[in-house]
Design a binder for these strands. Structure first.
Length: 885
RNA sequence: GCCCAGAUGGCGGAACUGGUAGACGCGUCAGACUCAAAAUCUGGUAUUGGCAACAAUGUGCAGGUUCGAUUCCUGUUCUGGGCACCA
């Protein structure tokens, strides 16, 4: 557990100024532009002071739907005081119901409860992955196969106090804002899908159940297709749905409880990803509001609690997942779309004509939607409803390293700290273990808990949501960034970042910007004017496969885990890749059983279940594909007693190409390359690899070519024997032509971020200038200015070699002199029936008739025509000629 | 499973708005220089057939639109990114 904490934080003693400077110097060395890093931001008190300040402003603000903007919470208090209970501040979308009595007298706690429902950063309870054995909370990617990645301990869900950002209040504006920013369509689509705005209806069904309950239960579902109301064959509620507490009759309780226990052991990701269909009948029925039919209510993990009402009406003939579910559990399917449903697969069309649908019969589905909603509203059993897939963003972490929340807890109420007491600095701690109930490490600090300070810390995206504003005014100690500074600099003109931020960072920072804009602290409500997605450099990851076993009704002394006959933590067993490939076969079961018997020296062991968890292993302890078993045992303490099931005496690792990332243990260090070739070569090679947007595996073959190019460039200025060879002679037209053609190509390439073709143009240029034997200063100077963005160090060096005093960065970018580039004719490709057969040199200003005459007179063309007259001659100026026969 | 993107020689890639497919670089083959090596330079290099001129085929796969498709449309396969606690 401690190791976890250390993995996730940097010891404050190490993250000193020196460390940051070293880090910067490293980045500088390899020619990277310094962007930002979590370590850098959070270790700078002024950053976290102002992050905390903004958090407080979010806490003290609410979102006024009528005005579509954030306002100070005092406005809300006044509004509520003035209008009391009679008018809800957000009619139509009540988040909260309270009575006049609640509000009367302003009971402190009640008031806070109400305000908490409006605050833009608020506190609540949320589910986390909880690992009892490690006593810690785990991130989703630290859970593999339902057990902890490290140690293989069972993981279950647990409710814990969490902070949230009310980003859902900004859903519409985040959607609309996409229209005014220059992002790729793919990025916009990802964001709008994430927000997931949909139009539909909430429909409430009465319930028939033999279970005893005080109130008459009802079930509200959300659907985008109320037109299919008569095709409902069953209902499904999420396993977390509260209704399960009140509607399950005695005779179904055991079955439902068993199912819920199973679900609790599975992550949300697994629930979405797995193809297997699971579910359980609750024993209760919903009553169809129009025809009174009893519709069975099921619970299944394919319905997620966080979306809509956490319950759906299932229409198997129109929805693929519902269809599969019905098939799997033999639920009869009602067809409401006639021939459009073939009985073999669902048809999600909106264009079929409805039948078996009472008052909707004969209508096209598309039109029936509105009619159905109107009828539902009229009868008071449903309401029109806009729904968003996006949920509020979890804004707290149970970690040490992050901005502490400036919140003091008093009698269960979160009280914001005084702004002038910021920053609230992280305490120095010795141990990074999690708190007693899985809280952050701060829960272990007596001075911290004695002050009743919040023990969660903020996530990385707190700082990354606004850091670009701080860059505009880094030394300001009055505010996070003065309005003058942010007005002067405006939006970030160009943001280069990966698509992996599409639905995280890039949405959060857009929300923060809108919030700061609403409150008048900045003058623009979108942070980034233009976004370019660079591709990811991929690494080759290596995997080991850990066995997760249950042993048949047998106690294995000292190897139990949580009372289960489960082999886990202390003797992890790893299976070689080749054996893993046999998974599912009887031979596999046999091999594993034999292996396990050998390892524990107990021939009576019988295995009940076997599953394999693929785990990343550091590429540095793998030679090709073969794992260095001894190094592996030392790599992580929990693997010290590891046992291996080998193939031919070797442990072979699995391989996958993934993004290169520290957490995937597949990184390579560029230091060696920089030492060998220099940072210009390294930088240029990265640019030359391919388009910026493309992802590709890291591969250094080919770096020689770029290095040779820079040496060739150098030889334009220096000769091994003669030394300096550049001259002050006047350049010829031919030399200018080569130069300006190069500059033009490089400029165009750079402007459209096509750096690889930019490098290519520079290579061609240098080759041509070398061929012309040109060493003239006036040409070379312009050439290296063009090169500067690609290879800044060598350019600067050569600039000074030629006697310039100031930096090349201050030199004006050379303007292309078009007069050297004018052409009067072109070699046209001539195609017969679209297939290029020859080339003809024709003047650029030739007319269609002239071209036809020239082309048809050509011997080769006549050969292909075989004496026939052409159907058509297509002539596209400056492009090509096509003769259709 | 859902959302997004990509697929072109032995390899990375180029072809910008539907107009000469394979620029540029790597690798490789042949040659020059050299006692030799390194470095450098010259030439060839999509596949198949041919001494050659040239011809046929060719941009993941199956179709379609067009005088003309790597580019547009429909379907499909595979690979990568994201899926809410990696940031």
């Amino acid at each position: 557990a401690e190791q976890y904490a250390i993995d996730h934080g940097i010891h404050p003693a190490v993250s000193t100024e020196t460390n940051i400077n070293n880090f910067r110097r490293q980045l500088d060395n390899i020619g990277f532009c310094f962007d930002w890093s979590r370590e850098f931001r959070t270790s700078t008190p002024s950053y976290y002071k102002w992050t905390q300040w903004i958090f407080l402003q979010l806490f003290k603000s609410w979102y006024d739907r009528k005005q579509a903007k954030a306002r100070p919470i005092e406005d809300l208090v006044q509004l509520l005081e003035k209008e009391g209970n009679s008018s809800h501040p957000c009619p139509g979308e009540p988040r909260l119901r309270f009575t006049a009595a609640d509000w009367k007298g302003f009971d402190h706690r009640r008031k806070e409860e109400i305000l908490m429902n409006y605050r833009l950063s608020y506190c609540g309870y949320g589910e986390v992955n909880w690992c009892e054995a490690l006593g810690t909370v785990l991130a989703n990617d630290e859970v593999v196969n339902g057990v902890s990645e490290r140690g293989g301990h069972p993981v279950v869900k647990k409710k814990l106090r969490q902070w949230y950002l009310r980003i859902t209040d900004y859903a519409d504006r985040l959607l609309e804002g996409l229209e005014k920013v220059d992002f790729s369509d793919a990025m916009k689509e990802m964001q709008s899908n994430w927000i997931g705005k949909s139009f539909g209806a909430e429909i409430t069904f009465d319930i028939y159940t033999t279970a005893k309950s005080r109130e008459k239960p009802s079930l509200t579902v959300y659907t985008t297709r109320p037109d299919t109301l008569f095709g409902v064959d069953f209902m499904v509620v999420a396993p977390e749905h509260e209704i399960l507490n009140s509607i399950v009759p005695e005779d179904q309780k055991a079955a439902v409880d068993e199912y819920l226990a199973y679900v609790k052991s599975r992550s949300e990701r697994e629930r979405m990803a797995e193809k297997k269909i699971t579910g359980c009948f609750t024993g209760a029925y919903a009553i169809h509001p129009f025809n009174g039919l009893h519709i069975p209510i099921w619970t299944s993990e394919y319905v997620l609690a966080g979306y809509g009402t956490g319950a759906i009406m299932a229409v198997p003939c129109g929805d693929e997942r519902d269809f599969k579910f019905a098939r799997h559990f033999d639920i009869p399917i009602t067809n409401i779309i006639g021939d459009a449903f073939n009985g073999q697969e669902a048809n999600p069309t909106k264009d079929a004509i409805l039948e078996n649908s009472d008052f909707l019969d004969g209508l096209v589905m598309r039109d029936a939607i509105v009619i159905a909603i109107n009828k539902l509203e009229e009868k008071g059993i449903g309401v029109r409803k806009v729904n968003y897939r996006m949920r509020d963003a979890a804004f707290s972490r149970q970690r040490y390293w992050g901005e502490p929340f400036p919140i003091v807890w008093k009698d269960g109420i979160a009280v914001p700290m005084d702004e002038k007491d910021l920053p609230l600095e992280l305490p120095h701690i010795e141990k990074y273990g999690p708190g007693p109930e899985g809280e952050g490490p701060l829960a272990n600090v007596p001075e911290w808990t004695a002050r009743h300070l919040e023990t969660n810390t903020m996530p990385g995206y707190a700082g990354s949501s606004w850091y670009f504003l701080r860059y505009m005014d880094p030394h300001n100690d009055k505010t996070f960034c003065s309005r003058e500074a942010s007005d002067y600099w405006g939006q970030v003109d160009l943001y280069i970042g990966g698509t992996e931020h599409a639905v995280g960072h890039l949405l959060y920072s857009r929300m923060w910007t809108k919030f700061l804009y609403d409150r008048g602290w900045i003058g623009h409500d979108e942070p980034y004017k233009r976004l370019v997605n660079q591709g990811m450099i991929q690494g080759s990851s290596r995997f080991v496969y850990r066995l997760e076993l249950k042993v048949k009704a047998q106690e294995l002394k000292g190897r139990n885990d949580g009372g289960q006959p489960f082999i886990g933590s202390d003797v992890p067993i790893f299976v070689s890749y080749g054996i893993r490939a046999m998974e599912g076969t009887p031979e596999f079961h046999e091999l594993i059983t034999l292996g396990v018997r050998n390892i524990f020296n107990d021939p009576s062991i019988e295995l009940e279940t076997i599953s394999l968890s693929p785990l990343h292993v550091d590429v540095n302890i793998v030679d090709g594909l073969e794992l260095d078993v001894e190094a592996f045992k030392q790599w992580r303490s929990e693997n010290a007693n590891a046992q291996f099931i080998l193939e031919e005496g070797k442990y072979i690792c699995g391989v996958e190409v993934e993004k290169m990332s520290k957490r995937l243990y597949n990184t390579v260090n560029p230091d060696d390359l920089v030492a060998r070739y220099g940072s210009d070569t390294f930088r240029m090679y990265e640019m030359f690899l391919g388009p910026v947007e493309a992802s590709k595996p890291w591969d250094t073959k080919g770096i020689e070519g770029v290095h040779r190019f820079l040496r060739k460039l150098w030889r334009l200025f220096f000769d091994e024997t003669k030394g300096k060879i550049w001259t002050t002679e006047k350049a010829t037209d031919a030399e200018w032509k080569v130069l300006y053609r190069t500059i033009k190509k490089v400029e165009e390439a750079t402007e459209r971020f096509s750096f690889n073709t930019g490098v290519s143009a520079l290579m061609i240029g240098v080759n041509e200038i070398t061929d012309l034997n040109c060493h003239k200063k006036e040409v070379l100077e312009k050439l290296i200015i063009t090169l500067t963005p690609y290879a800044p160090h060598i350019s600067e060096e050569l600039w000074h070699v030629m006697g310039n005093e100031s930096s090349i960065l201050d030199a004006p970018y050379p303007a292309v002199e078009e007069k050297y580039l004018v052409e009067s004719s072109k070699n046209y490709p001539v195609a017969i029936n679209g297939k290029t057969r020859t080339e003809l040199n024709i003047a650029l200003d030739a007319t269609q008739q002239q071209v036809e005459d020239i082309v048809l007179a050509d011997e080769l063309v006549r050969k292909w025509l075989e004496g026939k007259a052409p159907k058509k001659v297509i002539y596209v100026r400056n492009k090509m000629i096509n003769v259709v026969v």
